[in-house]
């Protein structure tokens, strides 16, 4: 919902850039490259002609088809992850000019309106690099397993419809359910950091996305059957208590999911759950 009532300064700057963008210009892409895990990184620059409406993806496509650096050296095409190109699959997330976001919706006009302006592309830093701008985000999905982010149905049999749900509850859940597992909230989170050792995943910070998904399923009548198990997972090391309340997650979420509200709501649930457990002697 962006009826352009209140723009943050960065967005206002982007809007101004878009208006002043020069037609037929060339933009420099500085790309952080890496051949593979354990290999050193290096920077390469590419000159890319920018047609109207170009985005980072279309420029990377240009580089893939013509892998020649600014110095005129032939190089390998830049590797990156992408999918839908309409900001619903989450694949093409990377760090652009220092901020994490989807590259498909990053319009060049917004960032580099003048001839010779520079766009800096880096892979996300919180996940191991596979190659160039492509990172391995399996930990993100693993963390969804930690909170059992599913409704425990009795199979695909014909058992009638699901629970009746108020439009308000649907509205809340739909918003949470728009999370596309892109990892922006994790990249910007000071508490979520690179962890290559899979054995440590279960005790490292779980991330805003998983906390919010736990809330999504706890809010569903059938999903709530696993509520206690989800709260137990969130109480443990690397759970919700490891959140440092920097609240960057909600600022960078491309889907505007109220992640900090989810964190607070689950904080309350965990508080009550902990007290109950204490008095039950568990």
């Amino acid at each position: 919902m962006s009826t352009a009532t209140k723009l943050d300064p960065a967005a206002a700057q982007r809007a101004a850039n878009r208006k002043s963008a020069k037609a037929g210009r060339t933009v420099i892409f500085r790309v952080k490259r890496c051949e593979g895990p354990g290999k050193p990184s290096r920077w390469e620059e590419f000159k890319v002609p920018v047609p109207p409406g170009a985005n980072v993806i279309s420029c990377l496509q240009h580089i893939a088809a013509n892998p020649v650096t600014t110095q005129g050296a032939r190089t390998t095409p830049v590797v990156w992850d992408s999918g839908c190109l309409e900001e619903v699959c989450g694949a093409c997330t990377m760090v652009i000019n220092g901020r994490v976001r989807q590259s498909c919706s990053a319009l060049i006009d917004d960032y580099a309106p003048q001839e010779g302006d520079v766009m800096v592309l880096e892979p996300m830093s919180k996940f191991p690099v596979v190659r160039d701008l492509w990172v391995d985000r399996s930990r993100l999905f693993h963390n969804l397993q930690r909170v059992k982010a599913w409704v425990p149905i009795d199979g695909t049999y014909d058992l009638g419809s699901g629970p009746i749900e108020s439009p308000a509850s649907q509205g809340t859940r739909y918003k949470l359910s728009e999370c596309m597992s892109c990892g922006c909230c994790l990249e910007a989170c000071p508490q979520f950091n690179l962890e290559e050792d899979k054995a440590a995943w279960d005790t490292s910070f779980i991330g805003a996305h998983a906390i919010s998904q736990a809330r999504l399923f706890n809010e569903h009548a059938t999903g709530a059957i696993l509520k206690d198990e989800r709260l137990d997972a969130l109480m443990g090391q690397g759970g919700i208590n490891d959140c440092g309340n920097a609240q960057n997650c909600v600022k960078v979420c491309p889907k505007h999911i109220p992640l900090t509200e989810s964190i607070a709501a689950m904080g309350r649930a965990v508080t009550i759950h902990g007290i109950k457990k204490f008095f039950r002697g568990e």
């Binding site: 599913w150 409704v151 695909t156 749900e165 859940r173 739909y174 399923f217």
Partner: peptide, 17 residues
């Protein structure tokens, strides 16, 4: 549709839910 509903798909709802 019933099955998806049971899986928790947030289908838009009428006033009655």
């Amino acid at each position: 549709i019933d099955l998806l509903d049971r899986m928790g798909v947030p289908f838009n709802r009428t006033a009655e839910g």
